[in-house]
Design a protein around this nucleic acid. Structure first.
Lengths: 240, 240
DNA sequence: TGAAGCTGGATTGGATGCAAAACATTTCTG
DNA sequence: CAGAAATGTTTTGCATCCAATCCAGCTTCA
């Protein structure tokens, strides 16, 4: 059994809350996936996950099942669970979905945001820019994660639990897609979309905020290189 | 053990495809829930579900877990799974979510719909009106289900697997909400919203189709009576 | 009488064991 | 030597088993 998977990092040494261990395993695995510490296609065997987190296969399997529901892993019958490897088409669908949902979220945010929320957003933005200035792969990972968290904060303020869950899934899948197809290291290269968005929220300018949100999603998507990489190489190598 | 739960009805007698039994149990249970054959709040014990479908608790539990992810059942730790009993606020969130997603879906449909799709929609509409004319609780259930299926067909034609999954969940939750808070038996009392929508799709009039979709959701929501029923009665009985 | 504590039964959470499927390796055959 | 058959190994799917928790009814005590 190979213990080289770098996935058990964010886990608490001994369950702080004795509640649902499967949930916390899922969170650790999800972090590892969106952080690209686990490459798409990696096999996640029940036994391996179980021993790494020191639980039985039963609860390891439950965690993998949860991730399958979110689309972060694919389970193939009698074959096991693999970190999902979204196709370019799936990538486009992720952003198409976000284009529908996030303008609505931003409108709800403007309706409900409190001064305390604004302060929290500002603090988060500061941290984001801090990560952006640092160097190294770890800082890059932290930046991508923080960027996603900004959208999750918006979803939380919007106050719709269902949309929040959808955004949870969409942001996670986006991170996966960016890590696969992202051209530059960072999602928002050069742009300051989040800061602009926050200004529009503060001034309660709904149309502008929605337009900025759509533009922001355009920017993220424009940074992707969705030309299929593998799969064609075979044909290339043989025929051409 | 009570064997009175009328949930095992849609199940195939012996798994035609030996694949994933949990999945098919989930489908049966979901049908039963959105069909109102299982009332909100009903306890779904693992052992009971297991014996009803002739599987062990392990796979019964997996099915319940899936339903929990969709929000159709709530599992309380150490207490079990219960058919979820959405609050009025959750009900509003369901429709708020649909208002964001479905206009986008209808636009995608207009872009991609084929003549064969149109024929399928027409056939489905016929069946809907047929159910609407019949009498009895069974016909009412069939009508609600068919009405939801129309929206699911739209989502399928739109061609975005993620949005389709979201709509799966939203339609199921809507049926649950309607069965709980619906005033009239049917959702679209008197209106012919689906037929109008289909015309707009055929003429490829995106703005009109989107407006009709929003109006349709308004109609469904207007048919709800979201005043809290239980919970306040206690206060009423005691204080007032 | 009523409230707190206790006990028996039932139910869930989770670990383990076994059969079947998939995979890897070796052996056989042309 | 190449390809196919066969065998052994690994991993999943699932049933079963045990411990922990919860619930209901009963007992006890003020």
């Amino acid at each position: 059994m190979d213990k080289s998977l770098p996935i058990a990092e964010g886990r608490a040494p001994f369950d702080p809350n004795p509640e649902d261990r499967a949930q916390s395993i899922r969170d650790s695995l999800r972090d590892a996936i969106v952080d690209r510490r686990l490459a798409p296609g990696t096999k996640l065997s029940e036994a391996e996950v179980g021993t790494l987190f020191d639980v039985s296969r039963t609860v390891a399997r439950a965690a993998l099942q949860m991730l399958a529901f979110e689309g972060l892993v694919k389970v193939e019958r009698n074959r096991g669970a693999f970190v999902s490897d979204p196709t370019p088409e799936e990538a486009l669908q992720v952003f198409a979905s976000r284009r529908l949902i996030e303008p609505g979220i931003i409108a709800a945010v403007i309706e409900r945001v409190t001064p305390a929320d604004i302060r929290a957003f500002r603090a988060h933005l500061d941290e984001e820019t801090r990560h952006k200035q640092e160097r190294g792969a770890a800082a890059r990972r932290a930046e991508i994660k923080a960027s996603g968290d900004f959208h999750l904060m918006l979803a939380a303020v919007a106050g719709n639990a269902i949309l929040q869950k959808f955004m949870d899934e969409l942001v996670a899948r986006s991170s996966l897609v960016i890590s696969l197809y992202g051209r530059s290291g960072a999602s928002s290269c050069g742009h300051n979309d989040h800061a602009d968005l926050l200004v529009a929220v503060e001034t309660r300018d709904v149309p502008r905020a929605q337009a900025l949100m759509l533009r922001h999603i355009d920017h993220i998507e424009a940074d992707l290189d969705l030309r299929t990489k593998e799969g064609l190489t075979l044909k290339d190598a043989l025929a051409l």
